[in-house]
């Protein structure tokens, strides 16, 4: 278990990256830290292996403060995968993966067995790949190596800093899937920083939503989707995802007429019939030149609705309460 106890981080230029943050990252789970850029999520992660040190407060691993531990020794016990792959281009794949085992002095044989085992685990045939150089591999293959390199020393904790963000969408999805499957076998404590909500919802057991150096909400993805703690979280998750995860996509607009408004604000308008459902309406609003829907009951104009009104309407519907302004 990793525990942050009232941690504050202020950089030399005065920016406060973390404001009095206390949280717990559970053992053996994949915890995703998510938030817009500049929210302090990477700083928070880098404090776990002391690439950043707190200005005040304490970080504890298994209830032991890491501030008294030797940085180098601590980092060797924690896996680390960085955003832009970060494989060493002048070393073979085998040498790259064997880095931490070599640093901590494993025997050559044990190291080699471990390298082969890990390469097989991510579907890269050791006979083919271990003597190649990183640039001879595709981006997806390189980041697979990046992931197994972090696992090589058999750490209990693995930190991943937006590891798949530089990959093409297809490789990204594949690697997310593989990471999920891998985690089912290895049960490491993985801290995964991302700004991609789809990614976080897909792979995480546990979610930390951050904004401007503060924690907005912590919990399992399902809870955050069903119970966003505030407007920011709700907005960050996005209407579409809430819609996908809930049943109210099937509500017809006619059921939401209480949330229609009558004033045309001069925005781009698309006309729809009030028999369309919420899913279809969201799709229409997602198109360019469609800020507002003009809803008609056959020929009869009923009112306008936009994204935020729609959000209020469906939330009210779902929770059985009314959220009038």
């Amino acid at each position: 278990m990793i525990r942050f106890d009232r941690v504050t981080k202020q950089f030399d230029d005065g920016t406060e990256a973390l404001k009095n943050v206390s949280l717990t990252i559970p053992t053996g789970k994949l915890t995703a830290i998510i938030g817009p850029s500049g929210c302090g999520k990477t700083t928070l992660m880098k404090m776990i292996n002391r690439l950043e040190n707190p200005t005040s407060g304490d970080i504890l691993i298994d209830e032991k403060s890491i501030s008294d531990r030797d940085e180098v020794e601590l980092r060797r016990s924690i896996g680390y995968v960085i955003q832009r792959i970060g494989l060493f281009p002048h070393m073979t794949i085998a040498k790259n993966v064997a880095l931490v085992p070599t640093l901590i002095g494993w025997s050559a044989e044990k190291t080699q067995n471990r390298v082969n085992e890990l390469m097989n685990m991510v579907g890269l045939d050791p006979d083919i790949y271990i003597n190649r150089f990183p640039l001879e591999l595709s981006g997806g293959q390189q980041q697979r190596v990046g992931v197994v390199r972090a696992l090589a020393g058999d750490p209990n904790i693995v930190l991943m800093d937006e590891p798949f963000s530089a990959l093409d969408p297809i490789s990204r999805e594949q690697l997310q899937e593989e990471l999920k499957n891998l985690q089912r076998k290895i049960h490491k404590t993985i801290v995964f920083v991302t700004h991609d909500m789809d990614e976080a919802l897909k792979i995480a057991d546990h979610l930390i939503v951050m904004r401007a150096g503060e924690i907005e909400q912590i919990g399992p993805p399902s809870e955050i989707i069903h119970n966003p703690s505030n407007d920011f979280v709700r907005q960050f998750i996005g209407l579409e995802r809430i819609n996908n995860k809930r049943s109210f996509g099937q509500y017809k607009l006619v059921e939401l007429s209480a949330y229609f408004f009558q004033a045309n604000t001069g925005q781009q308008i698309v006309s729809v019939n009030n028999s369309v459902n919420v899913s279809e309406a969201i799709e229409l609003l997602g198109q360019p030149n469609a800020d507002v829907l003009a809803v008609y009951d056959d020929e009869q104009f009923v009112g306008y609705i936009n994204q935020s009104a729609l959000l209020k309407a469906v939330l009210a519907k779902e929770e059985g309460v009314s959220v009038h302004d």
């Binding site: 980092r75 680390y80 955003q83 832009r84 970060g86 494989l87 640093l103 390199r149």
Partner: peptide, 17 residues
């Protein structure tokens, strides 16, 4: 590339290494 150096440091290489 600074990301390569950060990877090295983050995995527990000393400055000399």
């Amino acid at each position: 590339d600074s990301s390569i150096i950060e990877a090295g440091r983050g995995m527990g290489m000393t400055r000399t290494q």
